[in-house]
């Protein structure tokens, strides 16, 4: 649905977007992730035909943004960082103005305005001035405006910025409910947002794509290690956590064991594996063979936050440097 090929955007002195390429399939929700100033907004502006690219091409819904911008604009809904609303208009009036701009009219438009207002939970403020709305409502009006003409592609620039936690959840749910009908690109620098809403992530830093993958794979890929939480209970005698730690460290494939806490007769540890080693079965066997009870054993996901910081250079890269991370450390002019 969206194909971007070595897209580049230069401003007077800075290179905002540097030869990025990616693809988005129909019906997907893709998170566009990166620190502030990474080039997210610029890329989105190019996709929506607001800015022309300096080099490369972007194809949205089968049309090139430079050659057939009108066709692209007809098929794209865009919510910029601050919702593009006119404070002196009433919500309903505003939505039908946008609908008309997008080429709708008459009964069709009136019906769609009600539908969209219902969907974005702004039906109760339809006849209020936008100036009087709270930030959360305004954001939802912005979202309603983006979907009014039922576009194939939705581009949302930080749709949850500045909202309170409850509003953030509502907005996320709304966005999720829009997937399927629409292909969605949303940008954010909030990680849990991506973990919760998106199927696929494009991480971008200093104008370059540093990783493109599913959320799940990315978590594995950046580390390639398993992180396992183990809780051990002494069967008869009191449990010496030192002994347990030494025993666990001896299991093959374990790279390090971190003591978490001891409670009465129980101790828990965080065990990390070497790259591409699966250690859960061996850990379980080791504990049982040593005569202890295994209370708990589960793999904890490496949080996307860690991955993100590694990829964007905010944290030292782990010893086993994954391919994606290696790329950026070269690209960085530190």
């Amino acid at each position: 649905m969206i194909t971007v090929k070595s897209l580049t955007k230069r401003y007077a002195r800075t290179l905002a977007v540097d030869h990025i390429s990616f693809e988005v399939q129909k019906g997907q929700i893709v998170g566009f992730l990166g620190p502030n100033g990474a080039g997210k907004t610029t890329t989105m502006r190019i996709l929506t035909c607001f800015l022309p690219p300096s080099e490369g091409s972007a194809n949205v819904a089968g049309f090139d943004v430079l050659e057939q911008p009108m066709e692209v604009k007809r098929r794209i809904g865009y919510l910029p960082e601050s919702p593009p609303v006119y404070p002196e208009m009433e919500v309903r009036e505003y939505l039908s103005f946008v609908g008309k701009l997008k080429g709708m009219s008459g009964a069709n438009l009136a019906k769609r305005v009600s539908e969209v207002a219902e969907r974005c939970a702004i039906a109760d403020v339809q006849s209020k001035l936008i100036a009087k709305l709270s930030k959360g409502y305004r954001q939802r009006v912005g979202l309603a405006q983006a979907i009014i003409h039922n576009p194939d592609v939705l581009v949302l620039d930080e749709p949850t910025a500045g909202l309170d936690p409850k509003q953030i959840n509502e907005t996320r749910d709304l966005i999720k409910s829009l997937a399927g009908d629409h292909t969605i690109i949303l940008s954010t620098h909030i990680l849990p947002e991506v973990e919760q809403t998106c199927e696929q992530v494009i991480i971008i830093n200093q104008g370059k794509v540093v990783a493109t993958d599913t959320v799940h794979n990315l978590q594995n890929r950046a580390r390639g290690v398993e992180s396992v939480l183990v809780e051990v209970e002494g069967r008869d005698s009191a449990l010496d956590s030192k002994t347990v730690q030494q025993r666990l460290e001896k299991v093959s494939g374990v790279s390090r064991v971190v003591f978490r806490e001891a409670h009465e007769n129980r101790s828990s540890f965080e065990v990390e594996s070497l790259k591409d080693r699966f250690i859960r079965a061996d850990l379980a066997r080791a504990v049982v063979e040593a005569g202890w009870n295994l209370n708990e054993l589960h793999a904890t996901a490496v949080s996307l936050e860690k991955v993100f910081l590694q990829l964007t250079g905010g944290e030292k890269v782990a010893p086993e440097v994954p391919a994606a991370a290696a790329q950026i450390s070269e690209g960085e002019p530190q």
């Binding site: 035909c49 607001f50 593009p84 006119y86 701009l101 080429g103």
Partner: peptide, 13 residues
Amino acid sequence: RTGTIELLATSPI
């Protein structure tokens, strides 16, 4: 100033 120019510029007009 308000950024609504982005709406106009990204509409098929």
